[in-house]
């Protein structure tokens, strides 16, 4: 009994993302966790709040030529080019395993046109085992000169409306940080019907090989992720949480429970762990344990008490 008293019961880590209830606030970010099965030998997947799978497009994409990634100070740049198996193979080959998991599966989607996003969402309607859709709006709109959907409030809203109208599950919109005022984009997708927003996607960056006098990445530019972007992400989550009334999911350089808790204090209802999965495949599970320990040690009734509880 002494032991039980010391440890206390397992703390209440449940959070709500609109109508979606997660057993804890820790998700794996799209593109850093494959289709989950890759991590099965190393992680107890059932301990996670949710799994967000690699972004899916209507047709398969083979992605960019090499070199696709490069390490930078406390971070990495990637230009994978959205390589994925396409929605049909995703449903036939990946979903059977995913729906067997006792953890919500969130499907990340991407497209070149509003129409493509709509068709993709329609294809996912009725597919068993999908808890929510996350919309990547950082892709270029090929019909609008390649400007990213996420850089223009009107386009961001249009994509959100198209997906939301077609979808039969909650819709989370993943915001790009490569804008002058992210709160404008957050409000635009909220107006478009988004059930939640997740942020931030990668920050656009570049690396140069001085010896060859060439860009390191074949794509020249890539997305910066990892601990290097955490302060920027934290600031944006804080600003967005103060500007919208839908739940905010924090992403950017999280590799510990402390990092995750900082995002929650800044106003995030949940977090996503991305690049850290590459370095420590068990990190997401360790963050769940760390959050549980914090809640217990600080005698909180629930993790929900901490959401946005930053003291001014």
């Amino acid at each position: 009994m002494e032991f039980l008293k010391e440890r206390g019961p397992y703390p209440d880590l449940r959070v709500n993302i609109g109508s979606l209830v997660l057993q804890n606030p820790v998700m794996t970010a799209s593109g850093t966790f494959g289709y989950a099965r890759e991590f099965e030998p190393l992680v107890n997947l059932h301990r996670l709040g949710a799994v967000i799978v690699k972004g899916i497009s209507l047709a398969p994409r083979q992605g960019n030529p090499p070199q696709r990634i490069v390490e930078t100070a406390c971070g990495m740049l990637n230009a994978i080019g959205l390589q994925n198996v396409g929605v049909e193979r995703f449903i036939s080959e990946k979903m059977p395993y995913l729906r067997g998991l006792d953890v919500p599966v969130i499907v990340n989607i991407l497209g070149d046109t509003v129409e493509e996003y709509r068709q993709l969402t329609e294809r996912l309607v009725g597919v068993d085992g999908i808890a929510a859709i996350e919309v990547n709006i950082s892709c270029p709109n090929v019909k609008k000169g390649g400007v990213a959907f996420g850089a223009d409030p009107k386009m961001a809203r249009a994509v959100t409306e198209a997906v939301k109208t077609a979808a039969d599950v909650p819709v989370m919109v993943k915001l790009s940080p490569n804008v002058s005022d992210i709160t404008i984009l957050a409000r635009a997708v909220e107006d478009g019907g988004a059930d939640s927003v997740s942020l931030i996607n990668t920050l656009i960056g570049m690396a140069i090989d001085l010896r060859r006098r060439k860009p390191v990445l074949a794509n020249v530019i890539g997305g910066l992720s990892g601990p290097a972007i955490k302060p920027v992400a934290l600031r944006m989550v804080y600003q967005v949480a103060g500007s919208v009334s839908i739940p905010v999911i924090g992403i950017g350089g999280i590799d510990s429970a402390e990092d995750a808790l900082e995002f929650i204090l800044a106003g995030a209802s949940a977090v996503q762990i991305g690049t850290a999965n590459f370095i420590n495949p068990r990190v997401s599970e360790e963050v769940v344990e760390g959050i549980a320990a914090y809640v217990r040690e600080h005698d909180l009734q629930s993790i929900r008490e901490l959401i946005g509880a930053l003291e001014a």
Binding site: T32, G34, Q62, P66, Q67, R68, I69, Q83, P281
Partner: peptide, 23 residues
């Protein structure tokens, strides 16, 4: 050898050209 982040098929950063096309 190749640059790679994860080593286990998650990051997809270590592609090389395949003789049959694709990577």
């Amino acid at each position: 050898e190749s640059v790679m982040a994860c080593g286990m098929g998650a990051c997809l950063g270590c592609n090389v050209d395949a003789a049959g096309g694709g990577y």
